[in-house]
């Protein structure tokens, strides 16, 4: 075991995967010599050579399109989009080609590729460096969408994603790269070295896609969260004094529906938190699943706490971010309705 940040864990996952399988290739903007703007690919080019880890021109449809061609040939590309906000030029390739390749070709061609991208805000990234586009991926039949919340999961999920036979969108909450963050932006930053999930094996292991993790067991309310919101939920439940069951979804698609249903049927209440905008956000799907499958167990209406339906503002970042105060208020609200 070693102490790792999420950046180091992600790098270790690619290192392990590249060492095990010559077909794994890593590329994207600035990922080669420089090692990526967040340093996730640092040292990989030096270790595996320029044919396995290389820089690309600033062209996301080219990055994803080339990856689709390579994956169809038999490679396992793990590409980086510098910020999730930059993925839109590559979206056509993902939706129309990667996601449908096996289906439309009757299984003759497949698209086993991973698109890594830093997601979310809380770093003063403003409108174009803070977005959380996970619902745009989860909506697409044929894609898988993964969002880890800690270094241990990040490494295990990324190795599992690289080995997966389907195209995987791997969203890395950039506010979590260097430590867990509970939304108290005015307090000192906690590093991963002080967190249990910063303990990461140096060798190969996987965390399976499609399995949620219960971060806190509780009896009064189920909190459905992923990425940065895991820590916001923990802080809010603690501060509100509510016995919450906190479920870290880890994978949005395939979704661990059974874990959700089991928990809500037990607690009878549900609060959903995500940083992305609300309308047609992933929380809408979660709320619908809860309504369809747990309605007669509910003691109060399902509540969503999300980013507002606005672009992500720069100066007003903390008014936008669904922090512990707003999440705590939602917890109190669902408890009052009892």
């Amino acid at each position: 075991m070693a102490r790792m940040t999420m950046i180091q864990a992600i790098r270790s996952a690619m290192d392990v995967a590249m060492a095990r399988d010559d077909n794994v290739v890593v590329f994207g903007e600035d990922v080669g010599f420089f090692g990526g703007v967040f340093r996730c690919t640092q040292g990989l080019q030096e270790k595996y050579g320029k044919h396995r880890c290389f820089d690309t021109p600033i062209n996301e449809s080219g990055i994803v399109g080339a990856a689709v061609g390579m994956a169809a040939y038999g490679k396992r590309p793990c590409v980086e989009i510098q910020f999730a906000d930059y993925m839109y030029p590559g979206y056509d390739q993902l939706v129309q080609d990667a996601a449908r390749m096996r289906y439309r070709s009757g299984g003759q061609f497949e698209s086993p590729l991973v698109v890594r991208m830093p997601t979310g805000g809380g770093i003063f990234g403003g409108v174009n460096h803070s977005q959380s586009p996970e619902a745009l991926f989860a909506h697409v039949a044929g894609l898988k969408t993964v969002i880890p919340s800690n270094p241990y999961d990040a490494k295990g999920l990324l190795i599992a994603s690289i080995e997966d036979e389907d195209p995987v969108m791997f969203l890395e909450p950039k506010r979590l790269y260097n430590g867990p963050f509970d939304g108290h932006h005015d307090r000192p930053v906690t590093p991963w070295s002080k967190h249990a999930l910063g303990e990461v094996p140096e060798d190969y292991y996987t965390v399976p896609l499609g399995k949620a993790a219960i971060r806190r067991e509780g009896a009064e309310v189920t909190m459905l969260v992923y990425g940065t919101m895991v820590y916001v939920a923990e802080a809010a439940a603690e501060e509100a004094g509510v016995d919450a069951e906190i479920i870290d979804l880890r994978t949005l698609l395939p979704l661990d529906m059974e874990a959700i249903e089991k928990s809500v049927q037990k607690t009878g209440r549900c609060v959903i938190v995500h940083e992305a905008t609300r309308t047609c956000g992933y929380g809408a799907e979660l709320a619908a699943i809860v309504a369809e499958n747990c309605f007669y167990h509910l003691e109060s209406p399902v509540v969503r706490v999300t980013g507002w339906d606005t672009p992500y503002p720069h100066a007003h970042e903390w008014d936008y971010f669904p922090g512990p105060a707003r999440v705590g208020a939602a917890l109190k609200k669902v408890m009052e309705k009892a």
């Binding site: 449809s61 399109g65 080339a66 689709v68 061609g69 390579m70 040939y73 490679k75 390739q93």
Partner: peptide, 14 residues
């Protein structure tokens, strides 16, 4: 046109 860049990716892999 999406196939055009995919052809380049295939050739790179080869």
């Amino acid at each position: 046109a999406s196939q055009y860049i995919q052809a380049v990716g295939w050739a790179m892999a080869q």
